[in-house]
Design a protein around this nucleic acid. Structure first.
Lengths: 114, 114
DNA sequence: CGTACATTCAACCATGTAGTTGAATGATCG
DNA sequence: CGATCATTCAACTACATGGTTGAATGTACG
């Protein structure tokens, strides 16, 4: 396992809020400033700032300076951890698991060949 | 979308705790009573009872009476929702996405044929 | 240099969470 | 029926969360 439990806690915790999920979604393909992020919501800058800190603590968002603004962008690595965690359960909900498992095994082999 | 935002909140929220993730894991393949669930942890029954309530509110665990005990089991449907949510992000972390996308499309078609 | 802009910090409030303890409920068994 | 076992409830504590307001920081610009 790559992440430890408290890190997993932080990832799930920061996803457990609609506003944060929405922010993450908007930061996937674009860098946005704090005020651009805040614009659609009926919340103060301070509130948005806190949401961003939560996302950053889970390493789901990173920031860089750009003059007087900060630019934020999503980092999806932690979601791969969630995906890995959830993968264990996949076999219990899908009869197609075996096929999918075979497929993923092939993908993995191909990766290792590279 | 099948689940709404507050439901998604509840699912992620209940996964944001190591003990609850552990309980869920143990309930996947077996039904267990509350005291069996509680046994490995250094927690009171009341605390375990609360954890179970959180998991049940997220529909991740269901219970039935068995004499004087309750038997609990995992219900993984909500995890499919999480998986669906996370699926959007998959394309941004994996170059194999297109191949996987094709594969899943095929699986989907096959399902629809049934 | 002083002002304006973008963002955070600090203090505060209300509510939620994770845990405890001790009493209450409900099913079983002699 | 009364005792016992499995579990929950109620009340409480300590701390976290999500929000506010108003002041503080840091960068840029004339």
């Amino acid at each position: 396992m790559i992440v430890n439990d408290t890190e997993m806690d932080r990832i799930f915790r920061s996803l457990a809020d609609r506003t944060r999920r929405d922010i993450l979604h908007r930061l996937v393909s674009t860098e946005l400033s704090v005020s651009e992020i805040a614009a659609p919501y009926d919340l103060t800058y301070a509130a948005i700032s806190k949401h961003l800190k939560v996302l950053e603590n889970a390493r789901l968002v990173s920031r860089r300076r750009d003059g007087k603004r900060y630019l934020l962008q999503a980092n999806l690595d932690p979601l791969r951890e969630v995906d890995g965690w959830i993968n264990f359960y996949r076999r219990f909900w899908s009869e197609a698991f075996d096929k999918l498992g075979d497929y993923l095994a092939i993908v993995q082999e191909n990766k290792e060949d590279e």
